Simulated scan of single mutants.
Amino acid sequence: MGPTPDAQDQPSDDLGAYVGLDADDAGNRARRRGWTTVRSVPPGAIITMEYVVGRINFEVAHGRVVRCWRG
Rank of each mutant, 00 (worst) to 15 (best):
R70F: 01
T48Y: 09
G16Q: 12
A23C: 06
V52Q: 10
P5M: 12
P5N: 10
V65Q: 04
R64D: 07
A30Y: 01
N57S: 08
V38W: 00
G2S: 10
G27I: 03
L15D: 07
R70V: 09
P5F: 11
N28E: 13
R70N: 10
G54I: 05
R31C: 05
P42E: 04
L15T: 07
G71W: 00
N57A: 05
G44N: 07
I47E: 15
P43V: 01
T37S: 15
R33D: 15
G54N: 07
I47C: 13
R64M: 07
C68G: 09
V65M: 08
V53L: 09
G54Q: 06
I56T: 09
G34P: 11
C68L: 03
V60S: 01
V66M: 04
E59N: 08
G2K: 01
A45G: 02
G2P: 09
Q8G: 15
Q8W: 10
R29G: 11
G20T: 10
G2V: 01
A45Y: 00
R55L: 05
R33V: 08
G63C: 06
Q8H: 14
D9I: 00
Q10P: 03
M1L: 14
G27F: 00
A7W: 12
E59C: 04
M1E: 15
E50V: 06
R55V: 06
R39P: 04
E59K: 09
H62G: 12
A23N: 07
G27Q: 06
P42M: 03
G54V: 06
G2I: 00
Y51T: 08
G63V: 10
N57Q: 08
R39L: 13
Y18W: 11
D24C: 04
V66R: 10
G71K: 03
R31M: 07
